[in-house]
Design a protein around this nucleic acid. Structure first.
Lengths: 345, 345
DNA sequence: TCCAGCATTCAAAGCGCTTTGGATTTTGAC
DNA sequence: GTCAAAATCCAAAGCGCTTTGAATGCTGGA
């Protein structure tokens, strides 16, 4: 059933039927009702592709996901996408993914723009040096970045959390508890968020008069075994850490496992603070949460990012939008005073 | 730059240019080269939407993802999607997601079909009773199921792993090691894969002459805290388990945490076997893997599912395709003989 | 009664591509 | 040199919708 058939059936022109269905005013209430009824009855829905061609709007939003063989699929991104996707659907937009080998990433963005497949693009995981912002500006497609990077933050739209302050506060907390050997298990620091977290960590160390020790600063993909391995290695140092700061609750679990194998209990024998993206399959649960954490729901960020991008698409003339979220610092069971005799204060 | 502009530029008809670019034979090698060159030079790419309308093929594949507020986004699905997406892109297909509230799931499938947005649909997480297979058959859109369910398995296309045999073998392994109190921490058993795993578990118990105990059979979403909670609860039983069988490596980590808190070490004081989907962010790593596991890469399954579906779309006349994968049972550090004095054999 | 003005409706053009059916040119066998 | 076949190209129709510009019918004030 297409528009013309429906129109013939009703003995109306396609113009009128189209207008009736799309809520234009130049059609009488009676016919509008008649059309709606017939459409429902025959299960008519406009062919999306034809509509897209006619209007020039795709009602779709693109995400490009680079994948290297054997590299991890970021579960944080999955939650972000879920949040964004909910909002897209509710607003009548489709979600279009382009999952490509990392080396084809730039080309994937170009294709999206050239082939007019989407009305806008959402960019995830910006790096400290990232070609995408310039590229997308050049392509002239509306876009919004989850995170931010580069010198001209006012020049494009983004939503981000205050990673630097979050990690400064978390580090301060550990320092106030008397810890002097504080390890950072960060994400890969070419990623903008991780670089900011590192900055916050260093700021707090300086403020607390603690020397920065490269042996205690680790960066890697945020998996459980890598957290485990890093913690295990650090505990073999002559002067091992008494506290850990991790970038992901996944890594934090790895640290927990490593420390338990050494007979150390979190909150008593050592402290651990993590950033918590509020992942649905790894909730920081318990009456009192397991981990002391800087928390910010990445799913909520996804929802808001989608709203902002849709807004940007509909009224581009009002210029770029930015939003910076502060994070909560919630106390859990995993932090406590530095153990006596283990600190070298 | 659109097709006509390019054609004018070359002083050719749009017909010829289109044919040249799409590799049809009725165009001389010389003009083909000339056209290709001009297209490259001016950065021309055909408008995908127009092409879709003209050909009737969308070159897109749809996935519907239902989401209930506060319900988990399945990380296993994320890896599956990554695998499928790689294959789609390589074959020139787009990935279209429809992320909707659970109660709108059926409508989302209907919309995909009615609006002709995709050439085919991939269905994930079939339930023991699932409306989707019948619905999609009725909608007449090619589809493939990751998993299988219902009485008529030969009637539609699917790819699945042998969950029943996997869990039978894992249970047998534990029984052979002398365990008599074997707990099952399953996924939600309205899901087809979980129901099959339960069957395999029960079969092996019967074979080993072990009575089924409802206290040792648990089902829930597969999160870390739920694994922790279930294990903790079971250990308070008068006759606690000496071995665990979990449906996900995520849950397995929860069990590990619970047992360590009780001072029990895996492989020595108790055993644990898990299914391992080979998730990229939770690898079962180590020279010897941490967990004894039935392993099957869900990402590889995604890749193969995509291939099968694309194949189904291009040659529907050859009927439904099915593929059942056996899983590897790999030994890790987490299993060992049942501890003496704790068994009630 | 007449006509301006409004409410409805419609025919046709167009979105950018593919594809059918023909037209034109080139080739090759005789 | 001739003519059928093959090679090459093109005009135009069509995919299913939206939207422009115009036509029609109806209202009520002069």
């Amino acid at each position: 059933m297409n528009l013309r058939e429906l129109a013939n059936l009703l003995d109306l022109s396609t113009t009128t039927v189209s207008r009736a269905l799309n809520g234009y005013p130049e059609v009488s209430a009676a016919t509008r009702e008649r059309v709606a009824e017939a459409a429902r009855l025959h299960g008519y829905a406009p062919n999306q592709v034809a509509r897209r061609l006619a209007t020039g709007r795709t009602l779709a939003i693109g995400h490009v996901i680079p994948i290297a063989e054997h590299q991890m699929i970021n579960p944080v991104f999955a939650d972000f996408l879920a949040g964004a996707g909910e909002t897209y659907s509710a607003a009548g937009y489709d979600t279009v993914l382009s999952i490509v080998p990392a080396e084809q990433e730039a080309e994937a963005y170009r294709e999206m723009a050239r082939q007019r497949k989407v009305d806008g693009i959402l960019v995830s995981g910006p790096k400290v040096v990232d070609f995408r912002i310039e590229l997308l500006a050049e392509l002239g497609l509306p876009f919004l970045v989850h995170g931010r990077t580069g010198p001209d933050e006012a020049g494009y739209s983004w939503i981000d959390i205050n990673n630097r302050r979050a990690f400064r506060r978390a580090t301060e907390l550990l320092a106030h508890l008397g810890h002097r050997r504080i390890a950072l298990l960060n994400g890969q620091e070419q990623l903008s968020f991780a670089a900011r977290r590192r900055l916050g960590y260093e700021e707090a160390l300086i403020e607390a008069g603690i020397a920065f020790d490269t042996d205690l600063a680790h960066q890697s993909e945020m998996t459980e075994p890598l957290g485990y391995a890093a913690a295990t290695r650090m505990m073999q140092l002559a002067d091992p850490p008494t506290a850990f700061l991790t970038s992901s609750i996944i890594t934090a679990h790895g640290v927990l496992r490593a420390m338990r194998e050494l007979g150390r209990q979190a909150g008593r024998d050592f402290s651990i603070t993590t950033h918590d993206d509020d992942l649905s399959f790894l909730p920081n649960a318990g009456e009192v949460p397991l981990f002391t954490a800087t928390r910010s729901s990445v799913r909520a960020a996804g929802r808001q990012a989608a709203r902002m991008l849709i807004d940007l698409i509909s009224t581009p003339e009002s210029g770029p939008r930015q939003e910076l979220w502060e994070v909560e610092l919630t106390l859990g069971l995993s932090t406590g005073p530095a153990p006596r005799g283990q600190t070298h204060a």
